[in-house]
Structure formats: structure tokens, C-alpha cells
Design a protein around this nucleic acid. Structure first.
Lengths: 193, 193
DNA sequence: GCATTTCTGGACTTGTGAGTCCAGAAATGG
DNA sequence: CCATTTCTGGACTCACAAGTCCAGAAATGC
């Protein structure tokens, strides 16, 4: 499918609109009519740009949101080479999720694309990229003698990502970042030791 | 609504059946017809026992599953008073989630009951009970001089629960307990220090 | 054993939302 | 400028699933 400039713009408008809608509505589900309404498009346009229908569209939105997760942590996540940088990253993560509130677009999406093979692949890719960036940061700290070297960076990065993930999930129901902060503090302290 | 013995049995059969269905089907959603089929009941029975309809029923299933989460960790979770006990608990948690596979009934339920006020309350209650039990374990370890005493038990317990939660969430997409094990090992090690 | 309540079966209504279709407008390229 | 492709609007079909309703069976209690 070759898109003209206009076509690309419309397609982007659809994905952006759907993503925004999901971010602004606590309501976990979204219908094609919602997307239509919020993006000023018609049914045929939706199916023109996403032949696979709803699933296809939501998968595109997932990619879009997955990218946001990492870009929202930049530039901190990319330059974890001394302790102040780590602390800035920590604060950015907490601030990002606090701002997002007790609502996660990606989770809503997983609930709806659920069984689709592409869905968990997007999440898997996101996690592994995330973990990779953290691991790189850990290694550079270890090389500089600023972090304990008796543990594999990749595994520590996995623990950190899991901790953040858990803190965020808990925030969905508690509404506070307490758990997120607790687990980050504990793990940072552990790395410092 | 007063239930006869027969009535209570039917009601239980419905909740049990729905819970089992959710546990056995990767598919995230469930319809009343699914419940009907798997429990040998009729529409009118479903609405007789759950006047609020589907939401009402799913909320009951949520309670049911939330109870399981904690009871599956017993008796270990209730007797965290020396390191071997903590390790047994750790193994039980990992084994439980490994057995459950990349699928979490509670998550499917949250996706479907979503906005209902009762839903996140169930989750919140579960988390706070869980955290409380862990905190009790930590305090008894601290009192016995087996765990560092320079940190508040409640907050450490929060970090642990968040870590487990995150590990489990990640398992949904990766299928492995690697992250769960990594974060548990890190935090245990941290507590030991 | 009779009246009353609880329980059960299943047909029916209704709303909703995904996906189809086609006719026509706008852009593109030679 | 003309042929061809891409883009758009909206009416339509169709399936599915929630919830309603009522008549009759089974249990309960006095």
C-alpha cells in the first residue's frame, strides 16, 4: 500500500487520535466509532488504512505508545553514567507515571489486542530494549567503579525493569507512586552497596 | 436475598466454573453464554444470583481469585520467621506463577470490570493484605536479628510486593520467570545485607 | 398438605459495534 | 489533460451478547 502525503497525514491522525483518546479516557475500551468521532474520519478510511480492522489499528497504536514509554525517559535513560544521572532518571520515571495517573494506555491495549500474536511481541520488544538501555548504564557505572561489580548487569537491569513495572501496575489501583518509589529506592541502594 | 442450600450450591458452581474457565482460556474475555455452557445453567439463573448482571458476577469471581492468590502462598507466607522459610516462600511464589503460565485471571477480570468501583477495591485490599503479611515477616526477622533493621518493614514489604507484581506482569509477555527471579533475588540479597 | 418462596429453562428483545460496499471526489503521473 | 490510482462519505448488513420475561418445577415452612 503506497501512501500519498495526504494519506500518510490521515493515517497518522487516526493513530494519534486513538492514542490520545485512550490516554484521556479511563474507560478501558475503545470502539471504531470513538476513533471515527475523534479523528473526523469515516469507516471506510479506517479500513482503508488498516485493512485488518480494529486489531490492525490498535496494534499500530500499541507501537506508537510503546515508543512513547522509552522516549519519555530520554535523555536520562541514554546517559546513565554517574549517580546524579541515575537519580534524574529515577525522578523522571516517577514524574512520568505520576502525570499519567492511574491509567495506562498500553495496558488497555493489551487487554484488547490480547491474543493477537503481534501484541505481546510489541511488549516484549519494548521490555528488552528498555532492559538493554538500563544494562548499558549499569555496565558503564561498573566500569567507572561506581557500582558493585559482583553481579551481572543484564540481570540487575531485569530486576529494575520488573520493579518499575510492578510499581506502575500497583499504581493503577492505589493511585500513588509509593510502591514504585519504594522498589526503586531499594534497588538503587542495593546497586550502590 | 436468602439462599437455600441448593441455591448456594448453584451460586458457587457458577463462580467456580467462571473462574476455572478464565484460568484455562488464554482468551481474555468471557461471555455469559460461556458461563452458562460451562456451569450448566440458564440465563435466568445467572441473573437470579447476580442481579447486577455480568459485572456483578465477575466481581464475585474477582473476590474468589483474589483469595486464591494469598491462599496459594500459604502456609509459607504466614510463617516468614527464618531464612529457610523465606526461601520456601520464594520458591512457592515462583512455582505458582510458573504453573499458572502466561495468563492471569485477575488481569483479565480487571480488564473487564475496569471502571467498576468495586474492582480496584478488591485489588487494593489484596495488595494491602499481602504487603501486611510480608511486613509482619520482615519485622519478626528484624526482631530476631536476622534482617537489617535500618529500614522500615512496611516500605520494604511494599518494594517486595511491587517486585513480584512486576515480575509476574513481565511473565505475561515473555513466558519466563526470569525477571521475577531476578527481582526477588536482588531484594532478598538487599534484605540480607 | 397447602401456601409461599425460591429456583430453573429457554425463548425473546434490544442495542451495539465490526466489517462491507459502492459511488464519487481528489490527487498523481505521463 | 486524461487515465489511473488513491482517498473519502456514509448507508447498510450481520452477528453476537446482555438483559428481560414468564411459566412451571422444586423446595420450604407452618
Amino acid at each position: 500500500m503506497t501512501l500519498t502525503a495526504k494519506g500518510r497525514a490521515t493515517r497518522d491522525r487516526i493513530v494519534d487520535g486513538a492514542a490520545t483518546f485512550l490516554r484521556e479516557n479511563e474507560l478501558g475500551d475503545i470502539t471504531l466509532d470513538d476513533v471515527r468521532a475523534v479523528t473526523n474520519t469515516s469507516k471506510s478510511q479506517l479500513f482503508h488504512y488498516f485493512p485488518g480492522g480494529k486489531e490492525d489499528l490498535l496494534l499500530a497504536v500499541m507501537h506508537h505508545e510503546a515508543d512513547r514509554v522509552l522516549s519519555d525517559q530520554q535523555p536520562y535513560l541514554g546517559t546513565l553514567d554517574d549517580w546524579p544521572a541515575w537519580n534524574r532518571w529515577r525522578d523522571a520515571v516517577i514524574a512520568r507515571y505520576r502525570a499519567q495517573g492511574a491509567h495506562c494506555p498500553l495496558n488497555s491495549l493489551i487487554g484488547q489486542v490480547g491474543t493477537t500474536p503481534g501484541a505481546d511481541e510489541v511488549v516484549r520488544a519494548l521490555l528488552s530494549q528498555w532492559q538493554g538501555l538500563v544494562a548499558t548504564g549499569i555496565r558503564s557505572m561498573q566500569d567507572a567503579g561506581l557500582m558493585r561489580t559482583d553481579l551481572p548487569a543484564e540481570r540487575l537491569a531485569g530486576a529494575l525493569v520488573a520493579g518499575i513495572q510492578g510499581g506502575v501496575v500497583i499504581m493503577w489501583s492505589t493511585g500513588t507512586t509509593d510502591h514504585l518509589e519504594a522498589v526503586l529506592d531499594a534497588l538503587f541502594d542495593y546497586l550502590r552497596a
